[in-house]
Design a protein around this nucleic acid. Structure first.
Lengths: 148, 148
DNA sequence: TATTGTTATACTCTATAACTATA
DNA sequence: TATAGTTATAGAGTATAACAATA
């Protein structure tokens, strides 16, 4: 499966702010972990969104920030690989629930664990005090961006 | 032009570390700026890589972290849109140099400026002292990742 | 032989528009 | 009418493998 994400990248291209390169480095790390588990990064995100409970298509599309038609394809491919299943929603015959299969649940856990340790490695060069400060500031940025 | 990147995203999906969501937020911000200037994010990166001097295909592919065959397509599309041009390399008839057109140069500057201000906005919620600390730590992480 | 780049092929991810089925 | 989801279509970005031209 050719997953198709820049594996390492972030070699200096000049002109791009370090924050953009940070995004590239982080995204590349996630992509590498996904690939190790034979997932695409987007499939990894999908599986993580299904941890704990089934979700409806419309809900997932919003969470992932993609159109419902794009989600149809994403779920199609994940279903074809045995990671998720579609199920009916009792009480609304228009709706579809997406659930994790056993395989999908295992892949989700492996992906989550792998991502966590890959991120730890990326932050490892920083002093311990900076690491926690960096994570705290990252959370603040994300929260503010979500609110806006 | 349907550019195809999650425009806002980063709504809570649960299970994903904030650092991953940070990458999503940053990537989304870059994508939005690119779209404003009718570029794809990858075209934006390509143009930035060409700021100042022409580069050879092999060199660009390494900088962007993609295979040379993928770069052929990327440059094809950018050339079709009048952003870049292919030129010969004196002294090596196998090689190709990619140069910015006037349009491409203008787009590159507009993209750079837009990205810089989008990043400023993302960091705006942090106290000024944290903003510079965050940028400094981001640079350190990127430098370390590049070295590894 | 090694290097540079292109072509061929196949996937994933994305969007918009049109459609079906249900509420 | 409005909502949930799919289908159809198109395009970007990616990879691998095979190839041509040149060093």
């Amino acid at each position: 499966m050719a997953i198709g994400l820049p594996a390492c990248s972030a070699h200096d291209l000049g002109g791009l702010p370090d924050l953009v390169e940070l995004a590239i480095v982080l995204t590349g790390a996630v992509a590498r972990v996904a690939e190790e588990h034979e997932l695409t990064p987007m499939q990894g995100r999908l599986l993580c969104g299904l941890a704990g409970q089934p979700r409806r298509m419309i809900d997932l599309a919003q969470s992932l920030g993609i159109e419902k038609a794009a989600l149809t394809g994403l779920v199609d491919r994940a279903e074809r690989r045995g990671l998720v299943e579609r199920a009916i929603v009792p009480g609304d015959r228009r709706a579809v629930q997406v659930t994790l299969t056993d395989d999908g649940g295992q892949a989700m856990l492996a992906f989550e664990t792998g991502v966590a340790s890959a991120l730890d490695e990326l932050l490892a060069p920083l002093p311990a005090k900076d690491r926690s400060a960096f994570r705290r500031m990252a959370s603040a940025i994300v929260r503010a961006a979500r609110a806006a």
